[in-house]
Simulated assay, not measured.
Amino acid sequence: MTPRITLAVARRVLHQLRGDPRTVALMLLLPCVVILLLWWVFSEVPGGMLDRFGPAIIAFMPFTVMFIVTSVTMLRERTAGTLERMLAMPTGRGDILVGYALALVAICLVQATLVIALAVWVLGMEVGGPIWALLVVALADSFLGTALGLAVSAFARTEFQAVQFMPALVFPQLLLCGLFLPRDQMPRAAEVISDFLPLTYAVEAMQGVQAGVDGAVADGTWTHLLVVVAIAVVVLALGTLTLSRRTD
């Protein structure tokens, strides 16, 4: 892997996304719309629903949006033959995957900044830890979604198939990550399964930032964040093994 080539791939992806304003709008605005809907729907319900669900939504949305966009975009590169042409040049598999990851995480930096600013400074979500920690966790979540999307794209043959991986890989994690019910109140088997799901640690890291005191995060927050990053790195490394030099 060569840094110059990796950055060239990242610039190419960003240039390509700039020509697709609908995708950019989806990536940047969808999480903000979801947070707004959450606040609006529960605005007359006592109990601070935004404080309860907001951190988990901020963790979940970058993960999900990046998973969908990355898997579909990479599959499009495969079917169009662009990926095959890139691999025929002095471009390594690692250059391609890391370049894609860098470009999409850069987009998520803007996405996360917008949704966190909306939730905290406009809608009033309470956060005990530092605001910058929310941004760091959101970026890690987007990196995880990007890595999973890149890996999944190797097993799909059409864009429809790529989208079908979402209910298989994302929805079970959504149900078991502790968003709707604390994990210690789940059946024991469900709690054990959730221990092996990366979104569980993403949500707990975000909740740890919210539960912080005096500008410091809660105990275990950085450990959960490291687990998310480690899983993403492993998945990205495995994705290089599935990146074929020929398009079927």
Rank of each mutant, 00 (worst) to 15 (best):
P3I: 10
L7W: 15
A8R: 15
V9Y: 06
G19M: 14
R22M: 15
R22S: 14
R22E: 14
V24T: 15
I35L: 10
L36G: 11
L37A: 09
L38W: 09
W40V: 12
F42H: 02
E44T: 15
M49I: 11
D51S: 07
F53H: 13
F53Y: 15
S71W: 05
T73W: 03
M74C: 06
R78C: 07
T79H: 09
A80Q: 13
E84S: 06
A88V: 09
R93T: 11
Y100H: 15
L102R: 13
V105W: 02
A112Q: 06
A112F: 11
T113L: 11
L114P: 01
A117W: 13
L118C: 12
W121R: 14
V122M: 15
E126V: 13
V127C: 05
P130H: 03
I131T: 12
A138V: 08
A140W: 11
D141R: 13
D141V: 12
D141I: 05
F143W: 07
A147P: 14
G149W: 01
G149T: 02
L150T: 01
A151H: 02
V152K: 00
F155L: 14
R157N: 04
T158P: 03
F165Y: 14
P167F: 03
A168C: 14
L169N: 10
V170G: 06
V170W: 02
P172I: 05
L181W: 08
Q185F: 09
M186T: 08
P187G: 06
R188A: 07
A189R: 09
A190H: 09
E191C: 08
E191A: 12
V192C: 09
T200Q: 02
T200R: 01
Y201D: 08
A202K: 00
E204L: 14
A205R: 02
V209E: 00
A211Y: 13
D219M: 13
T221N: 11
V227R: 07
V228S: 01
V234N: 08
A237G: 15
L238W: 09
T242I: 04
S244V: 05
S244L: 07
R246S: 08
